[in-house]
Design a protein around this nucleic acid. Structure first.
Lengths: 234, 234
DNA sequence: GTTGTTAATTTTGCATACAAAAATGGTTGC
DNA sequence: GCAACCATTTTTGTATGCAAAATTAACAAC
């Protein structure tokens, strides 16, 4: 049997063999979203490629991909930089996100199964637990999951993709916003109302709540951006 | 006045010297949107690069960029194909576009200058002229410009970018929808009401009109897709 | 004829090489 | 000292080369 192992014991599933440039896209996106690569950082291809353990070609492909998402900006003949975190841009993003989340809330009230809503409720109580314990990072994680879950309940993958793309910008800002206890409590209370509206499948109310929730978050982010700017000035 | 004019005969402005891969992005997008590269066409890198007069590297970068826009799909180790035109996907896109256009309409009613509205009106009458003359291609052109113009009046570049990206999918479908005279007349009439609502800056009404207008367009596209599918079946 | 297997071809994915443009640094003239 | 200019270095943009994977074709067994 001189079979050179064509594929009898092919254990690697199709999902496993991810391509290098795809992992690079994810790595680079994480670096940007988590602030390790600060806004307006120049992306030196040689240095970054080495850091990510790859060559320039897949890195450049990843940069183009993220440029379309708006996380990096392309400067002709001068490479690329991490997209700046401009207050004006952030306002725009929140307005669009508001419309997308509102739409998702409305659709979710119509399309969610009872099991879906039970899942959101479970996440909600996890979030409450971390809020009570003062664990901000964990709180953020479940908070984010709740919003994503509602988005998924809407049953519109295109909507979800647009949301995810824009939400990356907001996530970036989160790492520099520090929540006061008062604001934090308020956000948690709003989440209670959101869960309530979803449970009663009151689409109109859920829309309004999500919009308000985002508007309050925008205030937080703007304050953080102003503060950062003030610090940069002195 | 020491105007920094780097070189006297530097006619090429910064916008002019576009990079090869940027022109490739636009060329490839046009090929897809205008249907020259049909849905599900395999993108052979060697062939396409030759056709666009470039090498594989810029082409691959362009493909990654358009993948993020959703116009092409990446198949690991199997290259890329033009994104299929699935009815399900189209429905999703229209729902999201509806929310974005409605938002734009509302913002436009608040932010547009009188000059902006006059521009839209001018485009509207150009469109009417081409409708009267039965010139479908020119009608589409002005129709599209009206919607884009309203989008611009909203004064939210992020919103506009999201709209443009999703709208590319719809444009693709347009090339296979053939408008009956009745439907065409109805669309034109709707445009009259849209212009009216904008003129009166009635945001709530403009939102509703734009949503309905899109819903009607969706019906057209779905019919065209069904028809195409039926033809493909026999 | 169909199915399964294997060799040949093609195509993709990544790395590298090379050319053009931009950034840097140093020198000169004032 | 400093501004302008030119040479050097670095970095980007594009093309090409090469290995791995996938597709195709050919062929054998049933």
């Amino acid at each position: 049997m001189s079979n050179p192992q064509p594929s009898p014991n092919n254990v690697t599933s199709l999902a496993d063999r991810r391509l290098l440039h795809e992992t690079v896209i994810d790595q680079l996106r994480d670096l940007i979203v988590q602030g390790e690569l600060a806004p307006e950082t120049k992306l030196n291809e040689r240095v970054l490629a080495e850091r990510l353990g790859t060559s320039r070609t897949p890195l450049r492909e990843a940069i183009k991909f993220l440029a379309s998402e708006g996380l990096v900006e392309l400067l002709p003949n001068r490479g690329a930089v991490v997209a700046p975190l401009k207050p004006e841009k952030m306002k725009e993003v929140f307005v669009v996100l508001g419309a997308l989340e509102a739409l998702a809330g409305d659709l979710a009230c119509r399309n969610a199964t009872e099991a879906d809503i039970a899942d959101v409720r479970a996440l909600h109580f996890h979030m409450l637990a971390h809020h009570a314990a003062g664990e901000l990072a964990q709180y953020f994680k479940y908070n984010q999951q709740i919003h994503s879950r509602i988005m998924d309940c809407a049953g519109n993958a295109t909507l979800a993709a647009s949301y995810r793309s824009l939400n990356a910008h907001v996530k970036r800002a989160r790492y520099l916003a520090n929540l006061s206890r008062e604001r934090w409590d308020k956000a948690v209370q709003e989440h209670g109302e959101i869960l309530d509206a979803l449970t009663r499948r009151d689409g109109a109310r859920l829309q309004a709540l999500l919009r308000d929730h985002l508007a309050n978050k925008l205030v937080l982010v703007m304050e953080a951006l102003d503060k950062r700017k003030a610090e940069a000035a002195r």
